[in-house]
Design a protein around this nucleic acid. Structure first.
Length: 400
DNA sequence: TGTGGTTTCC
């Protein structure tokens, strides 16, 4: 169009940017070039153009660029969709505190919440395990009569199961009259995550009896449950069933299968599966293999997995630590030191691990990392969970 | 002729 000398108009860019967002995984440059044209041609202040730019950068995972576009949009043009797009972009990436901040800002500038805002905010709460804030948003959605909306209900299942409230999640699940595949997936994943593996697998089987078709997420849910339950043969059967259903396995499915085999000690089979994959394994797959090597003390295979991981995720501290610890455990100190040196040369920092325990209105962090055994840090709850500001009169959880 | 939504390994 540009080469033909035809000038794009305000409708051209949303189409082009939607396509660029869909192609973002393969080629991000196109979308950035289109962003350049938007500025050149002068359609930046069209709210649709701005919103599709937000979608493009959100899909790409470049939330800094998305925030910059958002900030440069004029206040009176920024609309409900602009806020929702950025909230969802943050919660997917996952910058969940930022998502909740924006959710609060939205109302303070006078833009109403709709189901999309609520769904994005609930998802952010789930990822943060922010039960209190999640309940407040649940309450808000009840007042707005959104709580029976399917997507909202599904997000609530996700929220409560991620926060350990399985029974509450199940209650919401049972009350949905028009359950879709995401409702079932959220509940199966919830059971799996909380260690109720039999319940997860039973629900997966029940789903078919209820006449629903599995999708690729259903299989991730059931495969990870089988993996944790040590049900190797059953997991293999589900994997074959997925292939028979013409669902193409993704990296995540292979990661689940490698985890299933590796955890059970079938290291050769796990490594063979990685080799036979129809595409290059990503860090999830190699990470699952490395984890299995750690459990079963297979240093040779761990070296291979780590080699790939150091290339794929050079800044990820966990992989260096894991391999170094494996060497140390068997007294191969020189090699352990080499891995630590490699880590240092790449300026990869290890943050000490800690456990968070909420006591009253305080959040206590127990540092359990090396050299800090037993030390304890006390912080104000709202220093850490920015969503605390939601506890105002109009957003309180009913006591009934 | 245009924009936003739930569920995904370790």
């Amino acid at each position: 169009m540009l080469r033909a000398g035809v000038r794009p108009d305000d409708r051209t860019f949303p189409f082009a940017l939607t396509a660029a967002a869909a192609a973002a995984g393969d080629d991000a440059r196109k979308g950035r070039e289109i962003h350049g044209s938007v500025i050149k041609v002068g359609f930046f202040y069209d709210v649709f153009v701005g919103n599709t730019l937000l979608t493009f950068y959100g899909t790409l995972g470049d939330l800094l660029a998305a925030k910059q576009v958002f900030d440069e949009m004029l206040h009176r043009e920024r609309d409900q969709v602009s806020y929702n797009t950025l909230i969802v972009g943050y919660s997917e990436n996952p910058l969940c505190s930022e998502a909740l901040d924006l959710f609060l800002d939205m109302r303070s500038v006078g833009i109403e919440y709709d189901v999309v805002s609520i769904v994005g905010a609930l998802s952010a709460c789930g990822n943060l395990s922010a039960l209190k804030q999640g309940k407040e948003i649940h309450c808000l959605s009840m007042r707005k009569l959104f709580d029976t909306h399917l997507f909202v209900a599904n997000s609530l299942i996700d929220l409560y199961t991620k926060c350990g409230r399985i029974a509450l999640g199940k209650k919401i699940f049972d009350r949905i009259s028009n359950k879709d595949v995401a409702s079932w997936n959220a509940m199966i994943l919830g059971y799996g995550m909380q260690g109720e593996l039999e319940a997860a697998i039973n629900l997966f089987d029940l789903m078919k009896d209820e006449g629903l078709e599995y999708d690729h997420v259903s299989y991730i849910a059931v495969l990870s449950a089988c993996s944790h339950a040590g049900l190797v043969e059953r997991g293999k059967r589900y994997f074959d069933q997925m292939l028979a259903q013409n669902i193409r396995p993704t990296q995540m499915h292979y990661a689940c299968m490698v985890d299933l085999l590796g955890r059970a000690g079938l290291m050769t089979e796990a490594a063979e599966l990685v080799r036979s994959m129809p595409f290059e394994a990503d860090s999830n797959v190699w990470g699952a293999l490395l984890g299995a090597c750690r459990i079963h003390g297979n240093i040779e295979l761990a070296q291979l997995a780590a080699e790939h991981l150091f290339k794929l995720k050079p800044g990820h501290c966990g992989y260096y630590i894991l391999l170094s610890n494996m060497y140390a455990e068997v007294g191969r100190w020189n090699e352990a030191d080499k891995v630590r040196a490699l880590m240092k040369s790449r300026k990869v920092k290890k943050n000490p691990g800690c456990s968070w325990v909420q006591i009253g209105n305080k959040l206590r962090a127990f540092l359990v990392g090396e050299g800090s055994q037993g030390s304890e840090l006390e912080l104000c709850y709202d220093e850490l969970v920015k969503g605390e500001r939601m506890s105002s009169a109009y957003l309180s959880w009913p006591q009934t």
